[in-house]
Structures are given as structure tokens and as C-alpha cells.
Computed example of a mutant assay.
Amino acid sequence: MSLLQVRNLKKSYGGVAAVADVSFDLPAGQLLALLGPNGAGKTTCFNMVNGQLRPDSGSILFDGHELVNMAPRNIWRLGVGRTFQIAETFGSMTVVENVQMALLSREKKIFHLWRPAASHYRDEAMDLLSQVGMEAQAARPCSVLAYGDVKRVELAIALANRPKLLLMDEPTAGMAPQERNALMALTKKLVVERNIAVLFTEHSMDVVFAYADRMIVLARGKLIAEGDGETIRNHPKVKEVYFGSGSTFTRKKKEAV
């Protein structure tokens, strides 16, 4: 059984279907890219999975738990991590303190600090920073980091909850090509090592084809295609609806190789 099972998900605004009867599965240890042109419904679908939006109908089953109508905080506690299109860290705090705060939250100790926060879970925080290549910058404030490094810290923060599922919203937005590939290669490595499932949205086709195991494509709220890179690249509806004649798609696919 897949770790994440989405069935017949629907969401409408003023009679307009943003997501119409979308279903898909995501097993552990796999990166699944959620794609679509502007207005396709991918952001709405993504936000329903993470609990920010409530679907009109349908089911989102994660590890045996129904997520529909569950608060985002409770979804997080079940083992669903999240990164954002614009990285979210505390700029005034050091790198290691940001990760320590995530660890404190995991243990429900944010409001029960009987000793300075800097003394809590430091070893575990440093281990997480080592995994994302940020151990050497642990003492630096997040406000002075390069954007690519902030994204790595955000990934460490997401991993602090020991997630089984990681939701990544435009993980490489605002990054240079080299930074994009480095972050996604790191994510792929961690997915394999930790057997994490990843659902991510992404506009950079080079990243999608280089690192996604599978892709699902939405258009006008409906799922029009699902499969590996070769299947999606040659799918007639994808060429017609998402990539027009297909020439842009083919060019981006070549760039990714």
C-alpha cells in the first residue's frame, strides 16, 4: 500500500472547478513531481494535501490516517514535513538554533523551556546540519547566508520532525542552476537513505526530469497524465495542453540531460 493515497479530490471556487476528481498514489522512497501550467490547479491540490485548504470532497490517506479536515499542525505531527517556495527561517537566530527550535517543537517543548534553548538537542541539530552540508556554518545567523544555503537549512528543519512524507513547494525557486541541482541531488540522496516520500511542485523542467521518479500533470483541474519522464515527454495531451506544440518541452528535456 502506498504511503500517500489521494482519491477523487475536488475543490471549486464560485462554481469553477480548481481541482476536479484528482487521484494519485505516492509510495515511500519516491519523488513525485506535481506539474501544470498556471491555473492548472496544482497549488490548490498541493495545499489540500498539506492541510492549508479543505477539499469539497475526496480523501487524502497518509500512512492510514485521513488528513481531510485535519489541522496542518496535526498533519505535521503525523510525519509530514514541509518546505516553502520562499524559504522560512528565523533570520536573527543562528543556523543551529533554527534547527534546535524545530526539534523543540517536535518534542512539544517550545513553551516548557526550563533552561536556555541553546542547550537543547544541539547534537541532533548538528547531525542534521551535517547531513545537508551546513555543519560548518552552524554558528552563523541565517540572515547572512546565501539563498541556496538558507534552503539547505530549511531542509534540515523539515527533517527535524523525522518525516515520512516531505512536501516541497517550488524547492529551487530563486536559485541558480548549480544551486538547484545541488539541492535536489541532496534531497534525492536523503530520500533514498531515509525512505522518505516527496511530493513537490516545480517550474524548472531541468530539475523535474533530472530528479523526479514520477510526474503527474494537471490541466484545468484535471489529471491528464501520469508516469516517468519519457512517458510524460511523449504524452499527446501534455504536449497539447501544457507545452503547446511540444518544442519548448523537448528543448527543456534536452537541457536536463
Rank of each mutant, 00 (worst) to 15 (best):
C45E: 07
F24R: 10
G51N: 10
N47E: 12
G58W: 06
I86L: 14
L4W: 08
P72V: 03
L67P: 09
R73H: 15
A87E: 00
T44V: 10
G29N: 07
C45T: 15
Q85D: 02
F24I: 09
D63S: 10
C45K: 05
F84R: 05
A71S: 14
G41K: 03
W76H: 11
Q30S: 13
F46C: 01
S23I: 02
G64I: 05
L9E: 08
D21M: 04
R82N: 02
T44D: 04
Q5A: 09
A18N: 06
Y13N: 09
H65C: 08
V68C: 13
L61I: 08
E88R: 15
V6Y: 01
W76C: 13
Y13P: 04
H65W: 06
N50A: 04
N8S: 07
G14K: 06
M48E: 05
N50V: 03
T44H: 07
G51M: 06
G15F: 08
R54W: 11
D25T: 07
L4T: 03
G51E: 03
F62L: 06
I75T: 04
G79W: 09
P55N: 11
E88W: 03
T43Q: 06
L34F: 01
G36P: 03
L26M: 11
N8W: 03
K11V: 11
A33W: 02
A18E: 05
D25N: 15
H65L: 03
G29D: 05
L31V: 06
S23G: 05
S57K: 14
H65M: 09
G51P: 11
P27C: 02
G39I: 00
N74C: 09
L3T: 01
D63H: 07
S23D: 06
K11F: 13
S59C: 11
V68L: 12
I60A: 06
G15D: 08
I60Y: 04
R73N: 13
N38Q: 13
P55E: 08
D25C: 10
L9G: 07
P72I: 01
Y13E: 08
W76R: 05
A20V: 05
G51A: 08
V80D: 04
D63P: 02
N74M: 14
E66V: 07
G36T: 02
G79F: 12
R82Q: 03
N8I: 01
L4V: 10
R7D: 10
A28V: 00
G81E: 00
N50G: 02
A20W: 10
Y13Q: 04
A40T: 00
A20S: 15
M70P: 01
A87K: 00
R77V: 03
N8E: 11
K11I: 12
S57G: 15
Q85N: 12
G79E: 07
R82V: 00
N69W: 12
V22G: 03
R73V: 07
V22S: 08
F62R: 04
M70R: 15
P37E: 01
A20T: 13
G39L: 05
V80W: 06
A17V: 09
L34M: 09
L35T: 01
G81W: 00
L4H: 08
G14P: 01
F84Y: 12
N69Q: 14
